[in-house]
Simulated scan of single mutants.
Amino acid sequence: MNALTGTLDPLTIDPTADSDEPPVVRLNAVTKRFGVTAALDGVSLSIRRGEILGLIGRSGAGKSTLIRCLNGLERPDSGEVEVDGRSIVGLGERELQPLRRRIGMIFQHFNLLSAKTVADNIALPLKIEGQKRAARVARVAELLDLVGLADKGGAYPAQLSGGQKQRVGIARALAARPALLLSDEATSALDPETTDSILSLLKDINRALDLTILLITHEMGAVRAIADRVAVLDDGRIVEQGPVWRVFATPRAATTRSLLRAFQPSLPAALVARLVPGRGRRTVLKVVVVGDQAREPLLAELALAVGARASLLHGGVDTVQGRAVGALFLELDGRNETSFAAALEFLRQRASEVEALGHVVDDD
């Protein structure tokens, strides 16, 4: 805990530490360099069975390299990579092939074969695997129904919308019943309405099949919509990870705060312009409250408990992963130091984060 601001210091947590079930994916201190550049720099990450993990980062953060290390297309310089309980570091190409079939992948630009029908595109992994035609036909019909394209098996990719093409890509990725689905910027080329439908489909598939999904994206909205946890990759390092609601409520790393800026209330520019550092007669605080505390009459309780007067300047309460998350900007009377200190202590006991932004300069 930072004693000055009341915020939590940066921290990452391994969600599988207290779990008896082995994770579907485990990376331990993975490093990959290209020349003098470290694309991955000591990355450790675990994904539980049936979990959706959002991996987010700006372009060049290392997301593509991480994917290629997961499917064996790149070999890390050091560290361990395990998929479905098996270490893949050091495996030859022949040994990697059956393991890759345990990893389904969907892409930003769909990667469908234009000369093949929808049904043939979906059946391709099964044909490569050597399954008989009757088994392929039955599996394709099952998958077309699952993704809502039961009547499109005979169509060609050029006859489909972008959302329909991505549904075909999802069906193809599921054909071989993978243990892990990698979604690599799968909604980046789609309009917002279609994006929502694809994310909803992925969540439905996750629940119905208990399928583990790694959602690689630069869109925090996609993570918020369906992910259970989020990990933030910056300059080849995991700088923050945790439940989506927690990260959205109290982002700890500077990169996370920047990526989340559009999703969090901010003080109006006119008020920011009047703030100066330190504490004065009227101090402005940012207070983050989560869960039941976000629904409590905080200002009334503050006045009753310590006699301090505070005004709500800006902010509101949202819901993330079913939890109420509030970001409130308060103006607190700071003339009485004892009362001010008692008010800060009261707020810190009830809030996830309390930050003094400065004090208001009165108009002349």
Rank of each mutant, 00 (worst) to 15 (best):
I226P: 01
E51S: 02
V276M: 08
R177W: 07
A327F: 09
L312K: 00
C69W: 10
L285S: 01
L174C: 08
I128M: 12
T338Y: 10
V25R: 09
V247P: 03
G278E: 05
G148P: 03
R237W: 08
L271C: 05
E93F: 06
G50N: 03
I106P: 03
A135W: 10
G278F: 04
V317I: 13
G79K: 08
A262F: 09
D151I: 08
L73A: 04
E93I: 12
P265R: 00
F346W: 14
G60A: 07
L202S: 01
D362T: 13
A186F: 09
A342P: 12
S59M: 07
I67T: 01
L357E: 05
P251M: 07
Q97E: 15
G54Q: 06
Q97I: 12
T255K: 12
Y156Q: 08
E331W: 03
L112W: 10
S64R: 09
D364A: 14
P76L: 03
I56K: 07
R49Y: 01
A134W: 11
T117H: 03
I205Q: 02
G236L: 08
V272R: 15
E129P: 04
V287C: 01
R68S: 02
A179R: 15
A176V: 15
P23A: 06
I106M: 03
S311R: 15
